[in-house]
Design a protein around this nucleic acid. Sequence first.
DNA 1: GGACGCATGTAATAGGTTACATGATTAC
DNA 2: GTAATCATGTAACCTATTACATGCGTCC
Lengths: 196, 196
Amino acid sequence: MTRIARGQKTSSTLGMALLSLLAREPLSGYDLAQRLDDNVGFFWHAQHSQIYPELQRLATRGLISGKTVKQSDRPHKKIYSLTERGKKTLAEWVTSPFDAPPLRDELTLRAWSLWVADSSRAAALFRAEETRHRKRLAEYRAFEKQIEAGWQAQLDDPSTPEFATWATLLRGLGYEKEYAEWCRRLADLLERRPRS
Amino acid sequence: MTRIARGQKTSSTLGMALLSLLAREPLSGYDLAQRLDDNVGFFWHAQHSQIYPELQRLATRGLISGKTVKQSDRPHKKIYSLTERGKKTLAEWVTSPFDAPPLRDELTLRAWSLWVADSSRAAALFRAEETRHRKRLAEYRAFEKQIEAGWQAQLDDPSTPEFATWATLLRGLGYEKEYAEWCRRLADLLERRPRS
DNA sequence: GGACGCATGTAATAGGTTACATGATTAC
DNA sequence: GTAATCATGTAACCTATTACATGCGTCC
């Protein structure tokens, strides 16, 4: 049996994440790292050490093209933008058959062993996690208000980036709300203060 | 600067996952792989190729101990059980300070690029995902009924494994419900059938 | 005879994090 | 001076998946 040629993997999710960001605006590796931290950090994340090599691979495959921009006051940078081929690849990936990789949630795993742990310490942990998720929820709600005020028209049109941003925000809102409520319920149970 | 000694890492999450399972009942590597597929597969997962070496490491550290059990009809197996030290390590890990590793959700990432994709194909994808999550939700609800019927007494006591199982089930129910609803809402929006 | 379940392992590869490395400019 | 931000890269390591490898017993 001849080996299937290696190094030909057509799409890593990280690569698609970078294309996703570049589809909206041309960005440098540094910019991309920032956005993968705060902007879309809720559902995808990567370090700069992973980003720079991946950008080179995407460029080799003709999905993006980079220009070096010289700046007088700061170090020069490479700004990448999507090529037509890149946009096509991205569009196809979005609706391609989906194998959900298994979820890993360490807090839920810990909950599964709650019975061996100290209940009051466990309650404190879940209170702390509830707070963390409530904070994020509050941030998302603030963003939601902005969006609903400023992007009314675009939210009806699935072909706008605003619609897509709003779509992910809806997920963030639901996710954090549910997570916070679960944490709170568990903390209550662990402290034996049954809710009404 | 002298290097910090290597190979001393005290706890991998996978290791804790295995201890979590062994805290409930002694199991073989094969059994563990099965449970990490269906039983606790919702929030943690591992392949057998990762499990066997990890078991050896845990045994070296004295957290578990294994006995070879000879079977006449089947291949012999190694049954591992938690040691006292293992149980202590597990209990401490459960409530130890928590750094939530960043969430990665490929479907949400795809949603962020919905605007470049074909809407009707996208709607089909989200319908399919909705179905997948609804199926899981139905399974969890069936399990919930069993639990509430059979484990009434234990559910008030956080020191029982039944309580801990129920705690994770609550998370599963909330997670799948929210996910399914999000998928449905997006599919509706993409098909321009606004909900009441 | 062949597929499937039980049972345990190793090897190769891919994906991701942490650490190493460099260097300019600006703000304190 | 020193920390922080901008800016790009490589190396080492850890984690996880896929593939390779073996072998017995049962069911069809």
